[in-house]
Simulated scan of single mutants.
Amino acid sequence: MMPVVHADLSKRLVPDELWELAAPLLPSFAARPQGGGTAPCDERAVFRAVVYALTSGCAWRHLPPTFGTSPATAHRRFTV
């Protein structure tokens, strides 16, 4: 039952209006010319995870998997 609560919360944390304001401000991640680098991910899911961690006080490593991104990815993108 708990994952459903987190899934609903993750959608309410970043409504469409907030995402429209925030999306252009996020850094873009281009492919490196030599190959490799970061795999593409759902930027909105990462943003939701960051907002959740900052507003709840949750430790990065304890982010619920229902956000659709790994805690390491959310933390790395926050620090960029």
Rank of each mutant, 00 (worst) to 15 (best):
M2P: 00
P3V: 11
V5P: 00
H6V: 15
A7G: 07
A7S: 13
A7E: 14
D8Y: 05
D8G: 07
L9S: 04
L9F: 09
L9T: 12
S10T: 07
K11Y: 00
K11A: 07
L13N: 10
L13M: 13
L13R: 11
V14D: 05
P15E: 09
P15Y: 08
E17F: 03
E17G: 04
L18I: 15
W19M: 02
L21W: 05
L21A: 13
A22C: 07
A23H: 06
P24T: 11
P24E: 08
L26K: 05
P27K: 14
P27R: 15
P27F: 13
S28Q: 12
S28A: 09
F29P: 00
A30F: 00
A30P: 00
A31Y: 01
P33W: 04
Q34Y: 06
Q34V: 11
G35I: 06
G35N: 04
G36C: 01
G37P: 07
T38P: 00
T38D: 02
E43N: 11
R44C: 03
A45W: 04
V46G: 06
V46M: 07
F47S: 08
F47N: 02
R48V: 01
R48A: 11
A49D: 01
A49G: 15
A49R: 02
V50D: 01
A53T: 06
L54C: 14
L54M: 14
L54K: 13
L54N: 10
T55W: 04
S56H: 08
C58P: 02
C58G: 04
A59D: 06
W60V: 03
W60H: 02
W60S: 02
W60Q: 03
R61D: 12
H62A: 14
L63Y: 05
L63F: 06
P64I: 14
P64Y: 13
P64C: 12
F67E: 12
F67G: 10
F67A: 11
F67S: 10
G68E: 07
G68Y: 05
T69L: 00
P71F: 11
P71T: 11
T73G: 05
T73M: 14
T73K: 11
T73E: 09
A74S: 08
A74R: 08
H75R: 15
R76Y: 08
R76S: 12
R76W: 04
F78E: 06
F78W: 13
T79F: 06
T79K: 15
